[in-house]
């Protein structure tokens, strides 16, 4: 297994794979995106209670899911780069942090917009929105720490430690916010949760989640490739690529 990771870790090998991979990933992303949007906005019937405003779910839930998913990727790639000293995972972590932060911001803003028709106010101290807000602070802390170092390698390792501490704290934060919010408002029936929706509403949601995931992979691959070029600028294969 170690041989596979090390081989996968070599920048040149990763560069070639990523070129091949990103073609497919972008195709899947576009297809799912169009399918999900069409299904969500047009086909799915209006919700009996909230009418059409529930369609925001097709953007809010995938974004919220992606924000947590990318933080997990930060932590795991950090752990891998700490244990096996692989350069690729450093780059992947550093590159996916801004994407994760943008998804968290997206989840927050769509959640707030969805709150308006539901509760009449934009920002509501709902448990999920609050833990999403704290997750945004964790992201901003991670990005700020990464940019505070000038040596890229040390920045990646420091970020790895922060991400690992963060990942341990996320369940604690989530549970404490749940505890706190149920205490103050009582169990609000939040429509943010995935309501037990039947098929026609669920399929577009799954399509959108896949679309967001492939979108993240495609963007991360592009950024990783440019970072690899920057890293390996004095090695021969990069000169060959840049030559033509």
């Amino acid at each position: 297994m170690y041989k596979w990771i090390h081989q996968f870790g070599s920048p040149k090998y990763f560069y070639d794979i990523s070129l091949h991979l990103s073609k497919w990933v972008t195709i899947v992303c576009i297809v799912c995106f169009i399918g999900g949007l069409y299904g969500g906005l047009v086909l799915a019937p209006a919700d009996y209670q909230q009418g059409d405003s529930f369609r925001i779910i097709y953007v809010h839930v995938p974004a919220a899911w992606m924000s947590l998913f990318i933080y997990v990727i930060l932590a795991t790639s950090g752990a891998i780069s700490l244990i096996w000293h692989i350069k690729i995972t450093d780059i992947i972590a550093r590159v996916s942090a801004p994407i994760g932060a943008s998804f968290t911001f997206l989840a927050l803003s769509t959640g707030a917009i969805w709150g308006k028709p539901m509760w009449g106010t934009y920002w509501v101290w709902d448990a999920r929105l609050t833990s999403e807000l704290i997750l945004l602070f964790l992201y901003l802390g991670y990005i700020a720490l990464q940019s505070a170092f000038d040596d890229k390698r040390i920045a990646a390792r420091a970020g790895a430690i922060l991400a690992l501490i963060g990942i341990i704290n996320i369940p604690i934060i989530h549970y404490s916010v749940e505890w706190w919010s149920t205490l103050h408002q009582g169990p609000t029936i939040t429509k943010l949760d995935k309501p037990s929706i039947h098929l026609t509403m669920l399929i577009p949601l799954i399509l959108m989640v896949i679309a967001f995931k492939t979108f993240y992979i495609a963007i991360a691959l592009i950024k990783t490739r440019s970072e690899i070029l920057k890293y390996e600028c004095n090695s021969s294969w990069v000169k060959k690529i840049l030559g033509n």
Binding site: Q50, R55, H60
Partner: peptide, 22 residues
Amino acid sequence: MGGYAAYVWSAYGISFIVLFLN
């Protein structure tokens, strides 16, 4: 959008902006 046009389209607007920015 059944009267919620402002909210739905602003939400989708923001998400397109964020995705395009990335």
